[in-house]
Design a protein around this nucleic acid. Structure first.
Lengths: 178, 178
DNA sequence: CGCATATCTTTCACGGGTAAAACACTCGCG
DNA sequence: CGCGAGTGTTTTACCCGTGAAAGATATGCG
């Protein structure tokens, strides 16, 4: 039928396309369009996380840990555990566990609030800051090469479209709780 | 500076854009472009999975379970556990666990291979097939509404770009093991 | 034939995430 | 003051995924 690979600048076949074709063969009546977006986002996320985290693993960090450190680094000030949970989009319990480990490794420090002794304030140690600053350039360089299969114009368009979708999702998902 | 919300057809601000701006303030020298794609893919995947799986949960299925059943349904024939692992992009151990539960619930059946007694063949029961066929239309309809914040043309472009990216990733990631 | 090697699947030990309960503390009000 | 409601954080119990080892065949080669 088709050559194994499309053309010269080659739109390679992706597995989601194959899956969608299978579904259409079984249920020709269904509109499978959403799969082509959601399925691909999920699959890209899975593949990227496997590949993309290589520089992090070399530094002995998981992505969630790096996200936590990164939140502290990029905001530039102390954050409470709840703020970190919001910022990294994860549960409070997860933040507690990560903080314990990162504290043991000397990457973050905590201090209690003087006024309200329920709350803690977390900040990067110098070692933590240096680690983030050391990893980030590598991480970005690596991500750049991972994305390099897509031409720059395509990357720009993709970023814009994803931004639009994400903006809508973030705006609406609280409302759509059902 | 900007009004809180861009324009009439409204490109809402997304959180990744805010994060990227923070990073640029701290490290103006870094090329943060990859974040605008990878960060958004990850965030979209997280939000979509939270929201998107609502119809599945009503049926008492997790997404990985549905993926497994779906693989059996869309291929239309029996699959071995290893084939299911490849097909659902997960480990063999995970497949074993899911099969145990799905078997107990009467959604799949297994039979041994007559020639090679190491291998098992898994197929949907009638109940499993009916369940998948019942859920899928709801799931697709729900996904359609979740994506509806993006206009149809944007959705088409997004699907194409993601397909191109995914094709490249799938083609290259085995090679890029470093 | 008989043993080493390879392959398919399951089991095990463990890490990491979550929801819900427990804890620790603040604050307002009688 | 002291108690009840509210909030920030941690603990607990549990689920699920993974990698590595184990278990159960198959297969090839001396």
């Amino acid at each position: 039928m088709t050559a194994t690979n499309g053309g010269p600048t080659g739109t390679r076949r992706d597995t989601v396309a194959a899956v969608v074709r299978q579904w259409q063969a079984v249920h020709p009546d269904l509109d499978t369009a959403p799969m082509e977006i959601i399925g691909r986002i999920n699959r890209c996320a899975a593949l990227l996380q496997q590949a993309e985290d290589a520089p992090l693993r070399r530094a002995g960090l998981s992505r969630p840990e790096f996200d936590l450190l990164g939140a502290l680094r990029r905001t530039g000030h102390e954050l409470t555990p709840s703020e970190l949970a919001r910022e990294t989009f994860s549960s409070g319990a997860a933040v507690t566990k990560r903080l314990k480990q990162l504290t043991e490794r000397g990457l973050v420090e905590r201090r209690g609030d003087t006024r309200d002794r329920r709350v803690a304030h977390v900040r990067l140690t110098d070692a933590g800051r240096d680690l983030v600053d050391g990893i980030l350039p590598e991480q970005l360089a690596y991500e750049t090469t991972v994305l390099s299969g897509l031409d720059p114009q395509g990357q720009g368009e993709l970023a814009v479209l994803l931004g639009a979708l994400l903006g809508q999702l973030e705006g609406r998902l609280g409302a759509l709780r059902g």
